[in-house]
């Protein structure tokens, strides 16, 4: 599996990470190295092996459907980059 600069640019777009033009070549090279490492998996015989879901086969715990959280909007909004009248502010999305 070879990975090209264009693949990295597409992944960065999907992951919403701006990559610096100066470092993208180096990023591509190092990710190709990591993928070469993980490609060693392909040699493993996994026929009939169930993918592991949990080390001790635990299952999702359920709880009664009741409200357990209290409203902490002010505490959460106090640490937000931009808020106004209880709302989180982002750049205009719809004209």
């Amino acid at each position: 599996m070879t990975i090209e600069r264009a693949d990295i640019e597409k992944l960065a777009e999907l992951a919403r990470i701006e990559l610096n033009d100066a470092t993208i070549t180096e990023t591509t090279r190092s990710i190709a190295d990591v993928l070469a490492l993980v490609d060693q998996l392909q040699a493993a015989n996994t026929e009939g092996v169930t993918p592991m879901a949990h080390p001790t086969d635990a299952v999702q715990r359920l709880r009664p459907d009741v409200v357990t959280e209290t409203n902490q909007r002010e505490a959460f909004q106090a640490i937000a980059p931009a808020v106004e009248e209880g709302l989180y502010l982002v750049p205009k999305v719809i004209d």
Binding site: L11, L14, I17, E18, N20, I31, L35
Partner: peptide, 22 residues
């Protein structure tokens, strides 16, 4: 989103996010 994450994360974190996304 793009610049917050591009500027806020370091190289190794970005690398792992991209590998994971791949």
């Amino acid at each position: 989103y793009m610049r917050t994450r591009g500027e806020g994360f370091g190289d190794e974190v970005k690398r792992r996010i991209l590998v994971g996304a791949y």
